[in-house]
């Protein structure tokens, strides 16, 4: 099995989330090779878990003022605040038979190459069930999966240099009882790579790609234009709409 590694293309958050559905479906239909894709974003955004209530997670007035895109993902899990250049997000699109059936085992297995890559960069990270990548000081990243009949999407976002104070203004975890203690503990939940390593974000991404290519047979690739066009259509029909983003 040869993987394709896609490491280009900057898109808005709605297009990024739409791409996830298009790519998972193409793989499910046998029209896409197994792929590792890195994300590049246009602006700060919130990626909301599929089953989360918008108003429970997001400081609504603040994100409105700042024009921050809040986009409901196709995958479950928790809300993530993301900034271009300050997080690393990648997606794996895999044939179902390449993924353990047991959900908990599959998160650990699909995170392992990335954990090994980060460890080789000097980051003391480990998998923490169900779906976290943890540093002793806090959570550095999290993964989420979507399963189709013959395909699995596994995407992961990690903090490289996230502005955690801004995160606490954007997400309501920062609001909890407005006590300093609550903010302190919320901040502790997130650890950012740049506090521990000198490597740039680009260097970390290179280590991730190299580690993946050493472990699996992989070649560079790019997204077909038809996939991008389809994602743009779905972004305008779904991932930019209040009907989807604020449905819960």
């Amino acid at each position: 099995m040869t993987y394709r590694i896609i490491d280009d293309g900057t898109y808005s958050e709605p297009v990024q989330q739409a791409l996830e559905g298009v790519l998972a479906e193409r793989l499910d239909e046998g029209e896409l090779e197994p792929t590792l894709r890195f994300w590049y974003r246009e602006s700060p955004a919130v990626a909301l878990g599929r089953f989360q209530a918008y108003e429970d997670e997001v400081a609504v007035d603040y994100v409105d003022q700042r024009d921050i895109d809040v986009v409901r993902r196709l995958t479950g899990g928790g809300a993530m605040y993301v900034e271009p250049g300050a997080v690393i997000t990648y997606s794996l699109y895999l044939p179902r038979e390449a993924v353990p059936d047991d959900i908990e085992t599959s998160y650990a297995a699909l995170d392992q190459w990335a954990i090994d890559a980060l460890r080789s960069s000097g980051l003391e990270v480990s998998h923490e069930p169900l779906n976290d990548i943890a540093h002793p000081d806090g959570k550095i990243g999290g993964s989420a999966q979507l399963r189709k009949d013959d395909a699995v999407l596994h995407h992961t976002t990690m903090s490289y240099a996230l502005d955690t104070s801004e995160m606490l203004r954007v997400l309501r975890i920062g609001e909890e009882k407005v006590s300093d203690k609550a903010i302190e503990s919320a901040e502790k939940r997130v650890a950012v790579m740049r506090d521990y390593v000198d490597a740039s974000r680009e260097e970390i991404i290179t280590v991730l790609k190299d580690t993946f290519a050493e472990r699996f047979d992989a070649e560079p690739g790019s997204l077909p234009n038809a996939v991008i066009d389809e994602a743009r259509i779905r972004a305008s029909e779904t991932f930019t709409t209040e009907e989807w983003n604020r449905k819960l």
């Binding site: 878990g49 599929r50 089953f51 989360q52 209530a53 429970d56 196709l74 995958t75 479950g76 899990g77 928790g78 809300a79 959900i103 989420a144 999966q145 979507l146 399963r147 819960l248």
Partner: peptide
């Protein structure tokens, strides 16, 4: 009944 949170469901349409 509305059920929300940071959980996962497969398939998600079963919500």
């Amino acid at each position: 009944v509305n059920v929300t949170g940071d959980f996962f469901l497969e398939p998600p349409e079963s919500h």
